[in-house]
Deep mutational scan, measured.
Amino acid sequence: MASQGTKRSYEQMETDGERQNATEIRASVGKMIDGIGRFYIQMCTELKLSDYEGRLIQNSLTIERMVLSAFDERRNKYLEEHPSAGKDPKKTGGPIYKRVDRKWMRELVLYDKEEIRRIWRQANNGDDATAGLTHMMIWHSNLNDTTYQRTRALVRTGMDPRMCSLMQGSTLPRRSGAAGAAVKGVGTMVMELIRMIKRGINDRNFWRGENGRKTRSAYERMCNILKGKFQTAAQRAMMDQVRESRNPGNAEIEDLIFLARSALILRGSVAHKSCLPACVYGPAVASGYDFEKEGYSLVGIDPFKLLQNSQVYSLIRPNENPAHKSQLVWMACNSAAFEDLRVLSFIRGTKVSPRGKLSTRGVQIASNENMDAMESSTLELRSRYWAIRTRSGGNTNQQRASAGQISVQPAFSVQRNLPFDKPTIMAAFTGNTEGRTSDMRAEIIRMMEGAKPEEMSFQGRGVFELSDERAANPIVPSFDMSNEGSYFFGDNAEEYDN
């Protein structure tokens, strides 16, 4: 993207840094990872977990959730003011799984939030270390993106479920800051804005008074975040219109849905970061690795190297396929839920299948599930090659597409044709070009129609051997075009429920 120079890199967003050079960025990201790792080690000690239990991804998720809940100030305040039966607002906890007599047992633990905050700050040299908290939120978000298709949420806001490739980060909490905003897809931002506008339509006082002023500035800020994701002048001009509207209503909703559809071809720039579970960072720190000293990046080879040398386990339900569970977590670790499966298959070195073909449910185990038949197995999170994460949407291309997802959002900077089903997408653009945004709409449609099938995206960008740390010898991959490109292809993934 041309304006790259004016933006802070995501590592800076990730670490609240002012302008830093590459070495400083690597050190501050490393410091953040160190903090998460030290916190995780301490929690495993508190909970008396064995090494194996500490490497269980379900335990990692519970521990991450506990610290996120302990620092969720708004919710904590709300819980104190609106006490609900049987919930102690000062405590947080969740299921911890232990191996007892050759069987997995679930144990519900409860801790004072104050105590968890103390352990977290102690692991982070006394700081609140917001960057580390956001990092864990993005890992949870990436896992949700890989596990669930947001059909219901899309339909509720009037969008087409086939636009799911635009929904990265749709389950990120509001408090995820600049680093969170960077990884949100165009569809996620559109959905947040539509929800806001709908509230304004239904509630006369939404934009009024002292609160209304705050609401208005939040609305304009979200519009600017979305505008910054678009790469064409016409899309940005249309966002200006939406932002400046005196009284946002149905016309703005129409414009936003139009823009979301246009992003299936004229893709937005959305950041991709490899955020790993805390149970990967903990053992690495415990083994003596100093992330701050060595430096770390979320968008280069580092996460690949770390996963190459990590042992992570997962509980497996009786009829689940461990290899499929591994694929789910591998995609989440690489922030690749909406990437082209052919690119992923090449990088991973084994075939990556669409969601609907995987015999696996989510990673988390519900409290009512029976533990008797639970097994555990090693997650295979290694890769054959590594590639640089991208934040450009890439230019655009036609490809055989599917009944489910009709476009992709690249996660890796790797040369390819970008699949999208042009006739299906263009069919949504018939007729409606009147109104105050008509010239911009016409211009956007013209650009979409001009998108050429034979153009290559990320020209000359390749993948790298894991021994090639400096990215000196790019390998331009070859793809098996007979395979499906979309992950949520004609899909039956479970729906995400809060």
Rank of each mutant, 00 (worst) to 15 (best):
residue 2 A to K: 01
residue 3 S to L: 15
residue 10 Y to H: 14
residue 14 E to M: 06
residue 16 D to N: 11
residue 19 R to T: 07
residue 21 N to E: 15
residue 25 I to W: 02
residue 35 G to N: 09
residue 41 I to W: 13
residue 50 S to M: 11
residue 51 D to S: 08
residue 55 R to Y: 11
residue 58 Q to R: 12
residue 59 N to P: 07
residue 62 T to P: 09
residue 64 E to H: 10
residue 74 R to P: 01
residue 75 R to T: 13
residue 78 Y to P: 02
residue 90 K to V: 11
residue 93 G to R: 05
residue 99 R to Q: 09
residue 101 D to G: 08
residue 102 R to A: 05
residue 103 K to G: 09
residue 110 L to A: 02
residue 110 L to W: 08
residue 111 Y to T: 15
residue 111 Y to K: 01
residue 122 Q to R: 11
residue 126 G to Y: 01
residue 130 T to M: 13
residue 135 H to C: 08
residue 143 L to F: 04
residue 151 T to L: 11
residue 158 G to T: 10
residue 158 G to P: 04
residue 163 M to T: 15
residue 165 S to P: 12
residue 180 G to K: 08
residue 195 R to I: 05
residue 198 K to T: 11
residue 207 W to M: 03
residue 211 N to Y: 13
residue 212 G to N: 08
residue 213 R to K: 09
residue 214 K to V: 10
residue 229 K to T: 05
residue 237 A to R: 07
residue 238 M to S: 13
residue 240 D to F: 02
residue 245 S to W: 02
residue 248 P to C: 15
residue 249 G to L: 11
residue 257 I to H: 01
residue 266 L to E: 08
residue 266 L to P: 00
residue 276 L to S: 12
residue 277 P to Q: 13
residue 286 A to R: 10
residue 290 D to H: 11
residue 297 S to M: 03
residue 298 L to N: 05
residue 300 G to V: 05
residue 312 V to D: 02
residue 314 S to N: 13
residue 319 N to V: 15
residue 320 E to V: 08
residue 320 E to Q: 05
residue 322 P to K: 01
residue 325 K to G: 00
residue 325 K to C: 03
residue 335 S to D: 07
residue 337 A to R: 13
residue 339 E to F: 02
residue 344 L to H: 06
residue 352 V to Y: 13
residue 364 Q to S: 11
residue 365 I to N: 08
residue 376 S to V: 11
residue 376 S to R: 02
residue 377 S to K: 00
residue 378 T to L: 06
residue 384 R to G: 11
residue 386 W to S: 07
residue 392 S to H: 04
residue 393 G to L: 01
residue 397 N to P: 01
residue 400 R to H: 12
residue 408 V to F: 09
residue 408 V to K: 07
residue 419 P to W: 04
residue 420 F to D: 01
residue 429 F to M: 10
residue 430 T to I: 00
residue 439 D to G: 01
residue 453 P to I: 03
residue 453 P to M: 08
residue 455 E to N: 14
residue 457 S to Y: 00
residue 457 S to F: 01
residue 469 E to L: 12
residue 469 E to P: 13
residue 472 A to R: 09
residue 477 P to I: 13
residue 479 F to H: 13
residue 482 S to A: 00
residue 482 S to D: 15
residue 485 G to L: 07
residue 485 G to K: 05
residue 491 D to S: 05
